[in-house]
Design a protein around this nucleic acid. Structure first.
Lengths: 177, 177
DNA sequence: ACCTGAACACCGTTCAAGT
DNA sequence: ACCTGAACACCGTTCAAGT
């Protein structure tokens, strides 16, 4: 006799995301997720291959959320940088997860279209990809350092972010080739 | 009756580093480390508070190794970038560990003196810290993306690295304030 | 004084048995 | 057709007992 479904993949992924922000990656145990969706741990395996697949799904959802925020931003690097930083502040653990081997390989890629457009406008289509990689690498590294507390000693973090962004835009704008 | 010591903290940390590169963070189990130094797992707790402290020590050793490489490099951003990238390629897992919450807070800080000197020469002492943060953030983000395979699609990675470095040096060199 | 086996708590995962 | 208790393998950690 069929049994009604007591949870959904979506609810599981959402529980995983919530636990991730509350307790970090180690807090995302199958048991904690199961409890949160009102089921026993073995039942999760009906919807999710294993814990790694669950974390991948959480990373995928985060990538989509980031992509959607970036897509509704202005297409210039200053606005995109602010949106990117806002996401990292709102969901620091998910942001970190995106740059982990567990993340789907194309996680970043999905979010990169607006950055590519902004870069093309600044340096031309020919160097847009290199420029986007420069911008993304800087922003990602900066935010990870900020989240890790690497900027505790000296200086204002907001100022350092603005300084870096300006220098990059300057460097890209004055490109020779 | 005293028993001779059958291992040392140094051997334990070195075993941890080797296992980290061979099998990633999950491969650094207390049992695997113990086996590698010829002892049983519980004995490790004589030298190391717990697994997290062991990983911290591994991260600390990696930070020292990186600092030592950077210290014997030329004090210009191009040379430092190449050394930084070389370290990330030689010890990718240790490099990743350095930007993880487990890393000692001052891990990066220890390696930053040469970068600060190079930046001071380029933009003056007043903006050396902001410039060093720009450079370090870019290099770190770029290398993490490279290690994660985020550059699989299109373009030459070496070229993208050189392009980014040039744009940053250009942007820093043409600073206004 | 250091090392170890045994034990405990906890986790991921499987599977036969329930409904 | 989905859910669950029971079981297994594995891991981190503690501790009394060995030498």
């Amino acid at each position: 006799m069929p049994t009604p479904e007591r949870t959904t993949t979506e609810a599981i992924v959402q529980a995983g995301s919530a636990l991730l922000e509350e307790s970090g990656p180690a807090g995302v145990t199958m048991q904690a997720v199961a409890t949160r969706v009102g089921v026993r741990a073995p039942s999760l395996y009906k919807r999710v291959r294993d814990r790694e697949a669950l974390l991948q799904a959480v990373a995928g959802e985060a990538a989509d959320a980031l992509a959607s925020r970036l897509a509704s931003s202005d297409d210039d690097l200053t606005a995109l940088a602010a949106v990117y930083r806002g996401f990292a502040h709102d969901r620091p653990e998910a942001f970190r997860l995106l740059f982990t081997p567990v993340a789907p390989e194309d996680a970043l890629h999905r979010a990169s279209a607006p950055v590519l457009r902004a870069c093309a406008a600044l340096v031309g289509v020919e160097h847009a990809l290199d420029a986007a990689r420069l911008f993304t690498a800087w922003a990602t590294g900066f935010l990870q350092m900020e989240l890790a507390g690497a900027f505790r000693l000296g200086g204002d973090v907001d100022d350092a972010f603005a300084y870096g962004l300006q220098a990059i835009v300057r460097g890209l704008g004055s490109g020779t080739a």
